[in-house]
Design a protein around this nucleic acid. Structure first.
Ligand SMILES: [Zn+2]
Ligand SMILES: [Zn+2]
Ligand SMILES: [Zn+2]
Ligand SMILES: [Zn+2]
Lengths: 161, 161
DNA sequence: CCTTGACTGTTATGATATAACATTAGATAG
DNA sequence: CTATCTAATGTTATATCATAACAGTCAAGG
């Protein structure tokens, strides 16, 4: 349910997975963050996943690899990755996805395809600017924002009529 | 926990509650939608609430008033209200809030104050336009979007240092 | 050594949400 | 005015998501 039997043609996960991972490792080194075995494996799973993974999906895999078997194991790793900018939480799906640009801090929007379950991270600088502006008119000062869109990805728009 | 002991000074809930409710009733009449007793009471609760209400908060009140006592009672009313534009779901809070402009369909952004737990609906036409544009550049066609910001409302920015 | 703090693990529980089915109340056709 | 159909409401039971609280491990520093 979390993952379709195969991926969107244009969801080029595999080809830049190595690149994302090395960016993440570079970031961790630069900031002195400890990317421990559980955290690293969790991040690798998120990177390898075609869509977002639920905490219990991650937990199941971690347990199968000999890590802890209880929910906090997965939640701790996932929350740590999110806090430190290696992953994002997708609230609409109660799930998590690897950050595709861990090299730098950034505002992101997520594009969730209802046909293939892919989740794409889109640059959201302008969206965030518009949101900050709209909030400012109400006298509201933004800390963090969640921007998620549900629809059809490029591949699925073309494919299914 | 869902509701602070008292409200932000500028959260003028009470004064336009009647107006929001009558707009909602007009909408229901216009579209031939049945705003039954459970649905109406649920909507009134959302309108009266200072912040968003969780499904179980609503359920508790409904049960106390003689409606059903089980979760589906609340979830059905809430989901119906959301589907038909009378309320919005706030994913970050796992909660629901009354739509403050039920007269017309609209894209909305939500401003969630971490100090007073208020949730304000802000017009989001421009934010949505920016998001649609960003998605379009990735070939993604948006159905619906969730836009939620966490921060400090006007009253709380002034009040707390 | 031995304390300290970060990390990993566990048990137990809490919080959110839905599936499946029974019952009731309005609408409609004969 | 019934028979029938459907939308709405209710229930039981269960699924799914998330955290609190505490115990053991281990490496760094005094
Ligand atoms: Zn990112
Ligand atoms: Zn797709
Ligand atoms: Zn609204
Ligand atoms: Zn506030």
């Amino acid at each position: 349910m979390t993952q379709p039997s195969f991926c969107c043609p244009d969801h080029s996960g595999a080809q830049d997975a190595a690149s994302i991972l090395s960016q993440a490792q570079a970031r961790a080194a630069r900031l002195g963050l400890r990317l421990t075995p559980v955290r690293l494996r969790t991040l690798e799973m998120l990177i390898a996943a075609h869509g977002a993974l639920g905490a219990y999906d991650v937990l199941e895999k971690l347990a199968a690899e000999g890590f802890g078997t209880q929910p906090p194991v997965a939640y701790r790793a996932l929350n740590w990755l999110v806090e430190h900018g290696f992953a994002h939480r997708i609230r609409r799906l109660n799930a998590f996805t690897a950050c595709s640009h861990p090299a730098h801090d950034h505002a992101a929007a997520f594009l969730i395809c209802t046909a293939c379950d892919s989740v794409t991270e889109a640059p959201a600088a302008e969206v965030t600017a518009a949101l900050t502006d709209a909030a400012g008119q109400a006298g509201f000062a933004i800390d963090r924002a969640t921007i998620e869109a549900v629809g059809r990805c490029h591949a699925c728009t073309g494919a299914a009529a």
